[in-house]
Every structure is written in structure tokens, then in C-alpha cells.
Design a protein around this nucleic acid. Structure first.
Lengths: 233, 233
DNA sequence: CGGCTTATTGATCCGACTCAACGTTAGTGG
DNA sequence: CCACTAACGTTGAGTCGGATCAATAAGCCG
């Protein structure tokens, strides 16, 4: 959550209840009362919303360390559904606790804002992808964002296991399952990746970046200062 | 913002600076330092993000009463761009003020969370639209959401002026400008709306709702309780 | 082992895009 | 105030990316 260790200990005092759910099980439904937020300890979770005729859009895949459900604050009930992708362990954090907690630790409020701000930024990037990118760009963007996410947690950025199915990837990226498969095959033919069921190896991140139309960190370093003010934070 | 009147008066104390910008002018750029949030007094604003090769996705149209720029909290700089759709008057609210303000009025923190939660919800609905709906459903959904928004502010829900161009509508909905035009024409042929440049009249909201695959409030009342817990808030 | 879910590949089709032309409106400057 | 120009809106023709339907293979779990 980005709290310091003292705060984390205090947090632990408030957060006692743990819950383990298996692959495919629901953490919370859309429309359900907002009583708890959930911090993921291990495993992974997908969140989705759906039209009333059953089409569903996955809005995010969530991994350990992330906090789920905060966006229910406005309406007092969850507007999306959260389902485990694999056996997943979470901490339930009572909404009431948040109030107490925030009085004890002033930075909690700020951290909540920061997390929601982060989610908004993520959602905006997904909207750009859904609204403006073609299938190839979408999948390349996706692979690179996974790569970055694993790198941040000190896992390999070039080889990882997907916890989600091809169908889930498609649902997240707004393309059909079959298109995901075909693109994986094509990326593999062209030597950019290798796939073996859910194990993905990125072989040519540079080329993937070109397809995704994203910068390499190195290239970005040359560009960002031009649009930034002198001090960044 | 949803504050009570005493709070609003206190808020007014902190918020002094006003700014007027004309159609097409930029309120803030992506990458710009986050120094101010902006409350819209009159006019309207579009926010957008873009790929580095220039395709841009409009993420929202904003009207008086809305607060802009809060999602920059996490990174300390704006990640989207805000441009006026017409002559628009805003209040600049200094980021530093927020800290002071929140100490004076405890509910400010909560209100910020609520507003960001609302934005996330809006963004999720847009993602569903972008990922899963066809062009016809997108435009019908859009017209109905405008209608609801005007109704909430006690304007006519069946006749209103669009402040955004066809191109902007297309960019928001992830479809081409030409497709927007064609659909307006078709909706008109079929008697669901009449258009006269930017003046839109909704003639058959029921049929639009069916196309958008959304419920009428009346119909929703029958259905929601089935998926909700016994008490809703 | 057997049934079920997941993944892959092929064939076909259509919705929406692109390119293009043209009419209309609003904004600008002389 | 009018003329000019750029922006906006509309409609048509042709194309194609990705969806859908279908069949089969390959893991996975009880």
C-alpha cells in the first residue's frame, strides 16, 4: 500500500480476517453492499463489469499487494465483480475500520486517494487501448505491461506464467479469444515471443514495443523531460 | 461537490482564483505539474489521453459542478489533457489548499474519495462500452447518459445542445466521425431522434434504451433487488 | 480413464473504417 | 458588414480487420 513499516504494523492490528478463495470463486458481486475492501496476499483476481445481456468486460487483473473494492465508496455497493483466477488469499478490511484507521494514521486517507488515482490512470490507459488500438497493438501493449509489472516485483520480466485464460485476455483487451490465439501464434512465428500454454517468454521486447507504440524506458527518458516541469514530484 | 452549505462557504474562502478559457484552449496538458484542481463554474471541458503517434481518446466531457484534475494525485502531474469545448469559467484550487482545507473540514477527504470513486465508475462503464458494444449501442448509450445528466440538473432530458463536435463524440465512443453522422441519420429516419446540427431532440427514449441495452428506471426497479442484498445503502 | 475446459487453426462474413466529395456554418479580418 | 476560409457535418463507395462459426487437439481434474 505504500505505508511505512510502523503504519503497516498498526494496519495489521486492524486487519485480522483472512479469507481464501479458489479459482473461479467470487470475492464480491456487482451490487453487493460495500462492507469490506480486500488486500490480496497471494494469487490473483480479475474484476469485471457486464451489460445486462451478459457480455462482460474485464477491467483489471490484480496481484498481491493490491487493494480491491475501494471504488465502491461512492455508491456504497460494489459496481464490479471480483473473481479469483487461481487459489487466492486476501485480507478483509472492514469499511468501518477505515474510518478509525484514518484517524490513527493520517496518511491512510492520502494513500487511498493515491491508489484510486492510480486506478484511474490504469483505466484511462485501458480506454485508450480499447478505443484506439488494433488487436496487434493491444496484445503487445498487454505483454509489455505484464513484463513491467513482474519486473517491479523482482520477477523475470521476460518469462512468466499467465494466471488468466486466453478468453480472459481477450475480454480484457476487447478482442475475441481466437484473435488472441492467432496473435500469439503470429508473434511466435515472427520470433518475438515463445508460448507454451500459459508460459510466455518475451524474446524481442524492442519489437514488441514498436508494435505497442510505446517507448522503451531509455527512449522515454529522452522525451519526458521536454513535457515535464523542472521538478517531478 | 456534495458539501453542505457551511462547508461550501469555507471552501469559498480558500478558492479565490478564477480563470476563463475559450473554446479549444487548454486548461492543463498531460505531463504538466499538478498544482491546481479545477472546479467548472460554467461551460464545458473535454479530457483526453493519447498515444505517442497522436491518436487520442477522449475520456470524459465535464460540465459545471464537476472537479477536474484530481487523478493527478498519484504521480504529481496530470496524465491527461483538458481542453475547453466552449468559453468556460473555472476555479483554480491550489493543491496545497487541499491539505489545509481537509484539516478544517474532515468531510473534504471523504468527498474527494467519493468523487474519484464516481470517476472510476464512469470509466468502467466507458470501458464496457468500448470493449463490448457496437456502434449503434454506443451512440444510444451516449444519448441516454446525456439525457440523464441534463435531467439531474433540471434541464430538459429530451432536448439539448451538444457542446462537442461529431468528431469528439466519435473519439469518446471509439468510433469514426462518419459513423456518428450515419447513426444520427439512421436514428432520425427511424423516428427516435431529430437533429439539427448540435440540437438534439430525443423522441423515443424507450427504443433508444432497448438499443443501448439499458433499463428504464422503472424496469430496473424490478430487477436490481434480485442481485442486491436486502438493504441497499 | 473419461469428461470438461482450454487452446488452436481454418473458412467465411460483415460492421465499421478509410478515402473522397460536397454542402453548410461559424469565425476572422479587411 | 461582407467576403473569405477553415472547421464542421453529411453521404457514398470500396475495403479489410477482426468477429463468428466450426472442427479438432491438448491438458487438467476428479
Amino acid at each position: 500500500m505504500g505505508l511505512n513499516s510502523a503504519d503497516t504494523r498498526l494496519l495489521d492490528h486492524y486487519v485480522k480476517r483472512k479469507r481464501t478463495i479458489k479459482r473461479g470463486q467470487v470475492l464480491y458481486h456487482a451490487g453487493e453492499e460495500f462492507s469490506y475492501a480486500y488486500a490480496i496476499r497471494s494469487g490473483s483476481v480479475k474484476t469485471s463489469i457486464s451489460t445486462d445481456d451478459g457480455r462482460l468486460q474485464i477491467t483489471g487483473f490484480h496481484i498481491p499487494g493490491e487493494l480491491l473494492g475501494l471504488n465502491a465508496i461512492d455508491e456504497g455497493r460494489h459496481n464490479c465483480e471480483a473473481v479469483a483466477l487461481e487459489t487466492t488469499s486476501v485480507c478483509e478490511i472492514s469499511v468501518n475500520c477505515f474510518e478509525e484507521l484514518a484517524q490513527q494514521i493520517p496518511s491512510v486517507h492520502y494513500e487511498m486517494l493515491r491508489m484510486m488515482s492510480k486506478e484511474i490512470k490504469h483505466n484511462q490507459e485501458l480506454m485508450l487501448l480499447l478505443g484506439k488500438k488494433n488487436a496487434e497493438e493491444r496484445l503487445a501493449t498487454y505483454l509489455l505491461s505484464l513484463s513491467r509489472r513482474f519486473a517491479m516485483r523482482n520477477y523475470s520480466s521476460t518469462q512468466f506464467n499467465l494466471s488468466m485464460s486466453r478468453r480472459d485476455i481477450g475480454s480484457y483487451l476487447g478482442i475475441a479469444e481466437e484473435t488472441v490465439c492467432r496473435l500469439f501464434s503470429r508473434f511466435q512465428e515472427e520470433g518475438m515471443i515463445t508460448t507454451e500454454r500459459r508460459l510466455i517468454t518475451l524474446k524481442d521486447i524492442k519489437r514488441l514495443s514498436r508494435i505497442a507504440r510505446e517507448f522503451h524506458p531509455a527512449a522515454a527518458a529522452r522525451v519526458i523531460p521536454l513535457t515535464l516541469p523542472s521538478h517531478s514530484r
